[in-house]
């Protein structure tokens, strides 16, 4: 599945590259002379017929050769891969934060449905979903870095540096987690086996974790998995604000600098990450849903 997805992504990039005219201009700078442009065209193979270009392109992609960065002069893929762990770190922390905030909010909303708690939690969630990442980030910087001087605003390296960016990205994602938690839990609460659980004398708390959450988890994990691209999109903003040395922020700069090889490499790596995440979610499924694990044969 994953190789197929990657070929698809690469193909789309290939054609998008050529949409805006002669692709060689994406690799040239202001100062390039016509001779240099011609040389570049020869070197990059843009003077060959399209199918040949495509095959070459794919061949190069397989060995992760996306060209040399126009700005830094190094292979684009190295620059991207060097920054990938940082993004991963941020994304994972943000995910944990979002679940830690979102799940309880969603659960309270669902269990206290119709009461004032539901209204409070739902309103906060709604605001959270509407608030842009950069707004959250800047507000947090204002409060914790500027006013309180507790946490650093930019850079990385220590745990302290990780806090604000994770919370920013996490808070942004938490709203989605809260909403899906609420819906999923409400749906499971309507099921007849919850009545059975109560009928055999189970205490409410146990009903919640053994029966409700275990079943709600399936839908929650699905939606979180499907929303990972959104998380990555948010990471673009978060890394920019906090100057976090990750792939997303680096790519933003690369776009400004028209450093096309880097952009290309970045797209590839991010797509690959998303594809792998989906795989992980699928595998997680088999632990959560016995029907998927064991197949649906009746005994």
């Amino acid at each position: 599945m994953i190789p197929l997805t990657m070929v698809g992504v690469l193909t789309i990039v290939f054609f998008v590259l050529r949409l805006s005219g002669d692709p060689v201009y994406l690799f040239t700078t202001q100062e390039s002379t016509p001779e240099e442009i011609e040389m570049l065209r020869e070197e990059l193979g843009f003077n060959k017929p399209l199918p040949i270009q495509y095959i070459r392109y794919l061949r190069r992609a397989v060995v992760l050769d996306f060209g040399t960065s126009l700005r830094y002069g190094e292979p684009a893929i190295n620059l991207i891969l060097a920054r990938w762990p940082a993004t991963l770190q941020l994304a994972v922390c943000a995910l944990l934060v979002s679940i830690a905030i979102g799940l309880p909010f969603g659960a309270i909303s669902a269990l206290k449905r119709g009461t004032i708690w539901d209204t409070i939690c739902s309103t906060i969630t709604l605001i959270g979903q509407g608030a842009p990442v950069f707004w959250i980030g800047i507000m947090l910087i204002l409060i914790f870095s500027v006013r309180l001087r507790l946490l650093p605003a930019t850079g990385s390296g220590t745990l302290k540096h990780l806090i604000l960016p994770s919370i920013t990205l996490g808070a942004f994602f938490a709203a989605r987690v809260a909403r899906i938690s609420r819906t999923s839990i409400l749906e499971v609460m309507q099921k007849k086996y919850i009545v059975t659980a109560r009928a055999i004398g189970t205490k409410e708390l146990r009903v919640l974790y053994l029966h409700v959450l275990k079943n709600a988890a399936i839908a929650i994990v699905t939606i979180i998995g499907l929303s990972i691209p959104s998380l990555i999109g948010g990471a673009v903003m978060a890394e920019s604000i906090f100057n976090w040395p990750g792939v997303a922020g680096f790519m933003v700069n690369a776009v400004y600098n028209r450093d096309y090889p880097v952009v290309q490499a970045g797209i590839f790596i991010l797509s690959f990450t998303v594809a792998v995440t989906n795989l992980v979610v699928d595998v997680l499924y088999t632990y959560l849903d016995p029907q998927i694990r064991l197949g649906s044969q009746k005994v």
């Binding site: 099921k191 007849k192 086996y193 053994l210 029966h211 079943n215 959560l288 849903d289």
Partner: peptide
């Protein structure tokens, strides 16, 4: 409804 009265993940 016995089809719905048992917890599917236990």
């Amino acid at each position: 409804d016995p089809m719905a009265s048992l917890n599917p993940v236990l």
